[in-house]
Write a protein that binds this DNA or RNA. Structure first.
Lengths: 385, 385
DNA sequence: AACTAAAATGTAACCGATTACATTGTTTTT
DNA sequence: AAAAACAATGTAATCGGTTACATTTTAGTT
């Protein structure tokens, strides 16, 4: 059956509007029963009927099949150069956008990477995210970022959400209180790659990217010891997560090496916030025998602690030397500037994203890699004299 | 035609594995031609054939239609309680997950909100994001976050990406250098809601959520003036974006009110980083007539500036008083603590997300709202004596 | 029992891109 | 000139939920 169709418009506002109308007309003809003889449609109604340009529209316009259009748009070498050009031009003209859902549905993959972090409130995390984003954007991947707010429960909800959204891969930094990896099981079962960074689990089922926290903790403490300090407080968090446990281990190791007995009364457990640092300062001030050094497991907390110590009349570093961790910009703001452990956030993010994407592309298999350790360095500033 | 099928397994590892096998068998029967009489399949091959549980599987298992399953899973009241329970139970048992792409494809909406921010490096932004995330999560929306890195170009690429990913709505804080809103046109055309927050455009095509920057700049400057300071430097950024222009306007207004002539030689343009603050301090120190006050357009920069001023031997606030902006935690770390303008990041994020989602739900129409102003307050601390 | 209204469920088209396989047209080989 | 090889394009099934409309079942009424 062959139709001849006259489309008469009473008002055409713009080229683009005309396009819409024509597409709508084509669509209507395709879908209407042959019974209707007359038809009156207001533009607004029409535009509601169909508003997106699809490969079907392009195919109809050029009188080729959707398959050809689909192939042309993906630059498949099997399509002739001439056809490709026609398709590209028309797609350009009508501002065609591929519908990602149709593609994802069909391809069973999403081009999306999930990122789960404890909190977005540190310079370090911002740097990591920036690194991840840079690599992901470049490779055409989307990012879904969510925060666990240091809660194991929220974390596992986020993991589930990521799973439901069928992310192609997951980059995770664990919360303080994560005590099992059950929620990640699903990913393992479906062979969806998961890479942990910074706050990594002790289990070795997944790939980890981190620094040597034992060593860094050791160096921080050793630095204090080498400055002659012997009564050293460690301010950290009570966490099931390995990072802080390892920093503590390094602290203990250094003490042992210098023959200083480990005194658990000198270990202050808080939440590593600036407020917690202030509380630690109070704790230190109240100790019967005044300590002469503090190793704080993060800079924000260390800054709070330094301010607290000064408020209690203690001089830093003369009375008490302080070492932080992270090389957060705050370490250069607080007076005196903090001696701290520097480690590369941006690089860590880049590396994590790149590893994941290479794995997804089949360029490398991360399952072969168990752990990647990045360098971390002690940066000596005023707070240790 | 009625088939009776015997499925014989040589090895069943677990209940779940059995489920997979049965589903595969059902699927095979549905899809195989009647010609094949014999069939041998290895489990690994089978699991590749079909690995996700779909509503079709559940429907087949319960001997109801997919429509019923679909409706039951969405808790449609039209489905009987009994059937619903059966469906829920089986879905639970087999760990069914709805395929978002299929749903999105069909529903023509994504349940995703795009967020574009200049940078993720300030406490304020982290707070905003946290606020957005809280509301979005609660309402079952996903978030795609991306950074423009203060570049107008990156920003418009991000906008395009968001558009291609068919976000349901967009929350944007503009970069320093955005000079036109062309890239957002697409959204306007398709009636996809866009809400700007904090760094909002001057145009009133879209809804804006922000504080009164003119007023805040005015108050900050007036505070310095009321402390007797008359030669006041303003440290800001050369930006096309209105926020900083308005803070400057407030600064100029306050000066005018106190009869102090506006001297453009006292306006220092940098990038508002801590380093830029240090540079501003150097600039101030080098000025022929020493200023006695500084109003810096953000706290991070102000902190850098304070440190720089101290390094140049100037006493804060005695020689020179400093006011920042944002009430970033750093304002309470730097010595002396910064007088600053506090404004609610978390609330701003919440409000932006909630407005957007209400609009999407049809509960409210944001197009009716032009601008929402949030309160901002001067917080007086040591840096102004 | 007959009839009607309401409740529950089923059927099938649809969203838009992908791709195995089939078909057609064109060039090269024997 | 016939056969084979290759290039270009087309056909139609597929991904998995959603929903308008159709059909069946149940409950309620006279």
């Amino acid at each position: 059956m062959i139709f001849t169709i006259f489309v008469v418009f009473s008002e055409i506002k713009s080229k683009e509007f005309e396009t819409t109308l024509i597409f709508n007309a084509i669509w209507l003809v395709k879908h209407l029963s042959t019974k209707s003889l007359s038809l009156q449609i207001r533009p607004c109604v029409m535009s509601r009927i169909k508003k997106e340009v699809t490969i079907y529209d392009i195919a109809a316009q050029l009188d080729v099949s959707v398959a050809t259009v689909s192939r042309a748009l993906r630059d498949d070498p099997v399509v002739s150069v001439k056809t490709k050009k026609k398709v590209f031009d028309l797609a350009e003209k009508y501002g065609y956008q591929t519908n990602q859902f149709a593609r994802n549905l069909r391809k069973q993959q999403t081009n999306t990477i999930g990122v789960i972090i404890p909190r977005l409130n540190s310079y370090f995390m911002a740097a990591v995210i920036a690194g991840i984003e840079q690599v992901a954007n470049q490779a055409g991947y989307n990012l879904i970022i969510s925060q666990s707010s240091e809660s194991a429960e929220r974390e596992s909800i986020n993991v589930r959400t990521m799973f439901n959204n069928r992310v192609d891969g997951l980059l995770v930094s664990l919360s303080y209180h994560t005590n099992n990896l059950d929620s990640f099981e699903k990913f393992a079962k479906k062979n969806i790659p998961v890479i942990f960074f910074d706050r990594t689990p002790e289990s070795n089922t997944f790939t980890n990217i981190r620094i040597n926290n034992v060593q860094s903790g050791y160096e921080a403490t050793k630095h204090l010891l080498s400055k002659g300090r012997r009564r050293i407080v460690h301010v950290t968090v009570s966490s099931t997560e390995s990072v802080y446990r390892e920093r503590f281990r390094g602290y203990a190791q250094a003490l042992a090496e210098f023959g200083v007995p480990l005194d658990m009364n000198l270990v202050y457990l808080g939440d590593l916030s600036p407020e917690s640092g202030a509380a630690a300062a109070k704790f230190i001030h109240a100790l019967p025998q005044r300590p002469d050094g503090v190793f704080v497991a993060n800079d924000n907390c260390a800054a709070g602690c330094v301010i607290g110590l000064k408020a209690h009349g203690l001089r830093v570093p003369d009375d008490i030397a302080v070492v932080g961790f992270n090389d957060d910009p705050v370490s250069r703001i607080v007076d005196p500037n903090l001696t701290t452990i520097h480690y590369p956030g941006h690089e860590m993010g880049e590396l994590a994203a790149r590893s994941l994407i290479n794995h997804l592309n089949g360029a490398a298999d991360i399952m072969l890699t168990q752990t990647i350790l990045l360098r971390s360095d002690l940066v000596v500033r005023e707070s240790t004299g």
